[in-house]
Design a protein around this nucleic acid. Structure first.
Length: 270
DNA sequence: ACCGGAGCCTGTTAGC
DNA sequence: TGCTAACAGGCTCCGG
């Protein structure tokens, strides 16, 4: 579920309760969620480590721990992280839990069990192939042009490719293409410099809007404290099939592109 | 090298 | 009401 704005919102909410805390244990009733190392080694290595910083790279949460260790978590479709007391009621979809020295817990709830946990000494092992951060100064219209150069595929599935650009998912891809006025089926190599410039600006605009509104609570996503984000009230096309386009009143169309639902205005996007 | 499709999971909703 | 199929914001693997 979560894309860059939802992960960023989660990171910001976790910093205050977690930075400076000490991890003293991990338990899991779904060890497949832990990709590397295996659960016994994770328990051994993480015991006693302090959480020094929490950041985001693409859709990954990155916890810098003492001892040169890095804990990396991907929420995938349905993951949710929250800090609670040890005796707080626990959802049946909580499968992995980090215990803190002061008795609190960091709980990973994940209904669909797609989420993943990694503990590594070299984060590039997991994050190395990701494309640039869309909100960083290094990401310019020219960067976007270079990364799409020679690609004949439709632009929409390319925006979802995390090696081209990190952090965009289905919502923000559709929203970006709407504000750029681009048909999601347009071959990437047909985009003019003006198209790419509009797309670059649109990507930054919708991601910043998503962060400002603390994520889109369309299906399962809620913030760590359980409350909803507000971006679902600001989408122009995503899951608005049949509803009038805010710019021209033409009904929003839904197609399947690269196996994913795709929503666009057939009049405004060309 | 690139692309589409299946697979991983559970829950909700749409359709008959 | 009850069953079944489709669908869900992600990503990886596999075969053509």
């Amino acid at each position: 579920m979560p894309e860059l704005p939802e992960v960023e919102t989660t990171v910001r909410a976790l910093r205050e309760p977690l930075i400076g805390s000490t991890i003293v244990g991990v338990r899991s009733d779904w060890p497949r969620q832990i990709v590397t190392p295996d659960l016994p080694e994770l328990q051994a290595r993480i015991h006693g480590l302090h959480i020094q910083a929490i950041n985001r790279r693409g859709k990954y949460l990155v916890f810098n721990l003492s001892g040169q260790e890095t804990l990396i978590i991907h929420l995938k479709m349905s993951g949710h992280l929250a800090v609670t007391g040890a005796d707080a009621p626990q959802s049946k979809h909580v499968h992995s839990v980090f215990s803190l020295a002061d008795g609190r817990e960091l709980r990973f709830r994940d209904t669909r069990k797609f989420g993943r946990i990694y503990l590594v000494t070299d984060p590039s092992e997991i994050l190395g192939k990701l494309g640039p951060e869309p909100l960083s100064p290094e990401f310019t219209a020219e960067t976007l042009r270079q990364r799409l150069a020679g690609r004949k595929r439709a632009i929409k599935p390319l925006l979802l490719d995390q090696t081209i650009l990190a952090g965009i998912g289905n919502i923000y891809a559709d929203e970006s293409l709407f504000y750029a006025g681009l048909d999601p089926r347009r071959p990437a190599d047909s985009l003019t410099p003006a198209d790419l410039s509009r797309l670059h600006a649109a990507i930054q605009k919708v991601l910043k809007l998503g962060i400002a509104r603390e994520g889109a609570s369309i299906d399962l996503y809620v913030k760590p404290d359980g409350t909803k984000g507000d971006m679902q009230n600001a989408v122009a096309v995503f899951r608005r099939t049949g509803l009038p386009c805010y710019q021209c009143q033409t009904p929003i169309t839904r197609i399947v592109l690269g196996g994913r639902s795709t929503h666009f205005c057939p009049h405004c996007q060309r």
